[in-house]
Amino acid sequence: MIKLSLSHVSFSYIDVPVLHDIDLAIERGEMVALLGPNGSGKTTLIKLLSGVLRPTEGEIHLDGSSLRQLKRREVAQRVAVVPQQFHMPFAFTLREVVLLGRTPFLKAFSNEEERDYKAVQRSMELIGVTELGQRFFNELSGGERQKGILAMALVQEPKLLLLDEPTAHLDINHQVEILDLVKGLNREQGITVIGAMHDLNLAALYFDRLILLKEGRIFADGPPSDVLTEVTIKEVFSASVQVMQHPSMKAPHIVITPKRT
């Protein structure tokens, strides 16, 4: 369980400002999507929340303690990140990759203990990759690899799970599978989830709260039906769309019509 707050957070890469004066509070157990066009600052915000980048100005607090004051290791014991994809240069098996998730808990000369192996087993069962354990990570399909990374993140026993476009390179069946798994973790384990998402419809279906970023500022923040409107999408993405109702769920569904047919 985690409460996250950002006060007046700004970030620049050397001279290029990316995020401006972000104020945000996220409660325990929320499932929040960050949306916005490329370059709007989604990924940067994920990196700031993971503590890998430090805000140029402002403070991020995680359960009351400032991210600046926490050691990397301490952050990694609470926050796990699933990036778009990992490239693995050596022939690690999937199980060995999942085991890497225990890194924040290991001391220099000690090996993993029974407890760590149990966590690996549990997490692999939960994600449904137990049978892939002995396969080489590099030889798996994109979706299988991403599930492996999700299992690795879960082994960190995170209170906060950050996703950086976790479904960007996946087929539609794997997109749904990954997001179903994430939703399960949120609902059943109470893990707070914050994900940068590219696909607005998937975000509307899976996330309770959407934050729409435009040029490094929060443009809209609220439940999907409030955030995804024809007006906001026009404003933020400069795209003309129609917003319909999902046929079976209480979620907005965005429909595009080509200019030429």
Binding site: Q77, F90, F92, L100
Partner: peptide, 16 residues
């Protein structure tokens, strides 16, 4: 071992 996930991946696992 953590570095095999790349520098960013290693940082996510708590590596300085």
């Amino acid at each position: 071992n953590a570095f095999s996930l790349g520098e960013e991946g290693a940082a996510y696992l708590g590596i300085n």
